[in-house]
């Protein structure tokens, strides 16, 4: 069995094409979409977004009302072990949320200011791109990055993919840490990943997300960024805002008003 180098190369090429067949490329293309300015991919009809007004939020130091509301609404267990924690919306200090250099000379007090973080419901969510079962997907009609807890296999690829640490895995049985589960929202079970769903179950009923509703300072503003007349767009048109890691091209939809 003799084979020339040329033949070998041809065969290798054919094998590669077989493996990465056209379907894959097309699918990758579809998943990656066009993020370039003026790109062909239309944004979803609606895109829910949130503006966190850091100044308003700072008026109430130590406040965790939004977090408590979310935890209660979604049966988020209080697991003491940090390694196994479940978090949908939680606080991080400013220098963690934003690039350290931006805050390096900030007053120590303001620097330790806690800022709420949550799933960014990205325009190009990496978690969705990598999910092998479609258990997480970007909803066409309103841009929410959804979770289907019935389909998740717990491979945690989405956790590796998320640049914001917004996903949690159920390392242990969450019900053991839920004193009094709220029957209106299912708990989760061992071995699935979870994250904020922008309260899709409330939004579909015309309500605001639980965290937004709970904020005493009205520091969280929820609305459709694709609607030029929405309140979020109004705020965005007149204030300076930051997003987390925009350089990664994920297109986060949580804005931080500075």
């Amino acid at each position: 069995m003799k084979i020339t180098r040329k033949e070998f190369l041809k065969l290798s090429g054919a094998g590669l094409v077989l493996v990465f067949g056209g379907r894959e490329l097309a699918a990758l293309d579809r998943a990656a979409g066009a993020t370039f300015p003026g790109g062909a991919k239309p944004r979803p009809r609606k895109q829910w977004a949130m503006i966190v007004d850091t100044a308003k939020c700072a008026k109430e130091p130590g406040c965790t009302r939004c977090i408590e509301a979310c935890d209660a609404a979604h049966n988020i267990p209080a697991i003491p072990d940090k390694a196994h924690e479940i978090q949908w919306i939680w606080n991080e200090p400013a220098d963690v949320v934003f690039d350290e250099s931006d805050v390096q000379y900030l007053d120590a007090a303001r620097r330790d200011e806690q800022i709420p973080v949550l799933c960014n419901h990205c325009d190009q969510p990496p978690c969705v791109r990598v999910c092998p079962t479609g258990a997480t997907w970007k909803r066409e009609e309103d841009g929410i990055v959804m979770m289907d807890w019935h389909r998740c296999i717990g491979c945690r690829y989405c956790m590796a993919a998320c640049p914001y640490g917004a996903r949690s895995f159920n390392w242990v049985d969450p019900r053991a840490y839920l004193a009094n589960p709220n029957p209106d929202f299912p708990t989760r079970t061992l071995g699935v990943v979870e994250k904020c769903t922008f309260c899709s179950e409330r939004v579909v009923a015309g309500k605001l997300p639980a965290c937004v509703e709970a904020c005493p300072e009205k520091a969280l503003l929820f609305g459709d960024v694709n609607d030029p007349h929405s309140e979020v767009r109004e705020v965005l048109s007149e204030s300076y805002v930051l997003r987390r890691k925009p350089e990664l091209g994920t297109g986060p939809n949580i804005y931080y008003r500075i």
Partner: peptide, 15 residues
């Protein structure tokens, strides 16, 4: 029922 809650069990015990 591993996830969906039976309200009759409420208070304290999820299962």
């Amino acid at each position: 029922w591993n996830c969906h809650v039976d309200p009759a069990l409420g208070k304290g015990a999820a299962r």
